[in-house]
Simulated scan of single mutants.
Amino acid sequence: LGDVAQSMSIYDNKGWIVVNNSHVIFAIDLNTFKEVGRIEDLTSPRYIHFLSDEKAYVTQLWDNRIFIVNPKKYEITGYIQVPDMTMESGSTEQMVQYGKYVYCNCWSYQNRIIKIDTETDKVVDQLTVGIQPTSLVMDKYDKMWTITDGGYEGSPYGYETPSLYKIDAATFTVEKQWKFKLGDAPSELQLNGERDKLYWINNDIWSMDVTANRVPVRPFLVYRETKYYGLTVNPVNGEVYVADAIDYQQQGMIYRYSPEGKLIDEFYVGIIPGAFCWK
């Protein structure tokens, strides 16, 4: 695959693997895992969001543009310019859609979520949140959720307490903000299949109903003196999978838990497991 398979999506019965440092997206056959096409000459692609058979958006690191691609022809067809962003500070990440609008969190050295009109391919609004929103998901009630990591001590962009934000998609306003502790590093915000329960990593694994008024005081899974690096929830049965990078050098481990938090299974995978994709 090349250098850093960042994310994977499934569309049109193909697997789309976004490989950022190699500037490429591979399309593979989901049965044979053979390559069927590729989109090349991307800057540092992070995620792909499909709008139709002939149009998708690809977010980038180190670029102030979101690329527009034609998945059917495997071609770059255009760009979305992100305002107030340079190539050096450029960072667009995960995308969710509400009606004709796509929302995207701007992560590295950024503090905002942008709103894109998919008919004009232009950024039409933006919402300021905390420093470095790392994830973006949309629940069953059309509320967007993002977690900010707060930057790091000594960062030229700033360092602050991380937060969890609940944002109304219709009005594009913050409904609620929960603050963590300074020095916390929350990440990997995920939803279950019903999209009514959140999960995230902050040393421990945490879980919270999307209708809750406060964050939980006890974790879903307690920290095990290791490096939880990836997280997902089986959309069918609610089982929780945790990826453990261990020391970033040896094979990683996946732990599978019941919805109640009981360990069901564990198995080795490759080095630094960071993301999951459900077929």
Rank of each mutant, 00 (worst) to 15 (best):
V137F: 00
E40N: 12
Y157H: 10
W107N: 14
Y57F: 09
Y79E: 08
C104R: 00
L42G: 03
V137C: 06
L136M: 00
E160C: 03
K73V: 12
I114T: 01
Y141D: 15
M144S: 01
T120H: 12
P83A: 07
T77V: 14
I113A: 01
Y101Q: 12
T77P: 04
K115H: 09
V96H: 00
D29H: 09
Y101N: 14
V123I: 11
M87G: 03
D139K: 07
I167H: 00
T128M: 12
H23I: 01
M144N: 02
E119T: 12
T161Q: 07
K115C: 11
T32L: 10
K100F: 05
V96I: 14
Y157P: 11
S91H: 14
V82A: 01
V69S: 00
G151P: 11
D63R: 08
D84G: 03
D29Q: 11
I48G: 03
Y98M: 06
V58T: 06
G150A: 05
K143T: 09
G154M: 07
D139N: 10
V124C: 11
Q60P: 11
Y159S: 04
Y103D: 02
L30A: 01
G37M: 04
A27K: 09
P162S: 10
Q132R: 13
S91M: 06
V36P: 06
C106A: 10
T59R: 11
D121H: 11
D29T: 08
Q110E: 15
K143H: 13
L30R: 13
M85N: 04
E160L: 04
A27C: 04
Y141R: 10
P83N: 06
I28C: 11
P83W: 07
T134R: 04
F33C: 12
L136W: 00
T43L: 04
G151T: 06
T128V: 09
Q110F: 02
V137R: 03
F26Y: 06
D29G: 09
N105T: 05
P133A: 01
P45Q: 13
K34L: 12
F50I: 02
I66G: 03
K115F: 08
